[in-house]
Design a protein around this nucleic acid. Structure first.
Lengths: 155, 155
DNA sequence: TATTGTTATACTCTATAACTATA
DNA sequence: TATAGTTATAGAGTATAACAATA
């Protein structure tokens, strides 16, 4: 029973989740809420339905996440400049700083992990994980398309 | 803004979760429940507190997961041979077959992903992901130990 | 006394459907 | 008529605490 590359990738995947959970333990932040902040940090102030699209979740769920983040002081609901039905959700200063720290942590972790790999292996590693990520994405999307086709046919 | 190995690994991590969710959509199985079945397939019939340890979750949570799996016909609660307080949770035939299919799928996915990598890069890739997994595990465990020490000190 | 699993309670994430206000 | 976000309702995962039966 040898340990495959896939097993290692799954292990890495679990460790990431654990690391993130640890990082925000004891704060009001959770994985789902941090994802909202992360999207806002990258897209800038956004309407809730745009957040729902970006997060691939329901508008209802966004309402709950934004409620929690607003209560904890991480985001603000500002009026939308042209559509009175909508809000613009934006980060507070506290959250912007937190996301900046997260960006720095991310870069440091990236460097620390790469430092564990012998320099002579790094190019092949980069090509390899990129190839695997692309192939996996292709497989997952093809699988989802096939499922969607089955749903169509039975509807 | 270049895409780092870390970014690729995070992308792979998300795709795994998505793939697993797709695979069990429309069945009573979920990620948490499949983890229970997976542990049972590897450890054999187990008492619930052993499952709680293996899954790093609370006994209460195991009660709920086993309830759901039992209701859906994936596991059985058998009396423990020597401890009348405990049950031995074991897979049904249906679940054993499902786990065997999952094992085969896992092997096939492993082969498909590796096939996307040029043969000349594979050795370096294997060494690289192993090194990253080990380093990441070390970092996460050290972080958890540091947090535990802080909790001790403040208690 | 300690352990095994359950009941009680609560919070979070998620989804669908019905509804209000606005476009 | 369609869209943005909310209320209503429900299921799932998780946690702590109190408790019963047994060790």
């Amino acid at each position: 029973m040898d340990v495959t590359v896939l097993d290692r990738l799954l292990q890495i995947s679990e460790l990431f989740q654990r690391d993130l959970a640890n990082a925000f333990a004891g704060t009001p932040l959770t994985t789902a809420r941090v994802r909202v902040l992360w999207v806002l940090a990258h897209r800038g102030p956004s309407a809730q339905h745009d957040l729902a699209d970006a997060l691939e979740t329901s508008p209802r769920n966004v309402t709950g996440l934004v409620d929690a983040l607003e209560a904890a002081g991480y985001v603000r609901r500002a009026p939308h400049p042209t559509d009175r039905r909508a809000y613009l959700v934006e980060l507070t200063a506290v959250a912007s700083e937190q996301m900046e720290r997260m960006r720095v942590d991310h870069a440091e972790l990236s460097a620390a992990l790469l430092a564990a790999v012998p320099e002579s292996d790094r190019d092949a590693l980069e090509r390899g994980v990129a190839a695997i990520a692309d192939r996996l994405e292709t497989l997952v999307l093809a699988d989802e398309a096939a499922r969607a086709a089955v749903r169509e046919a039975s509807a």
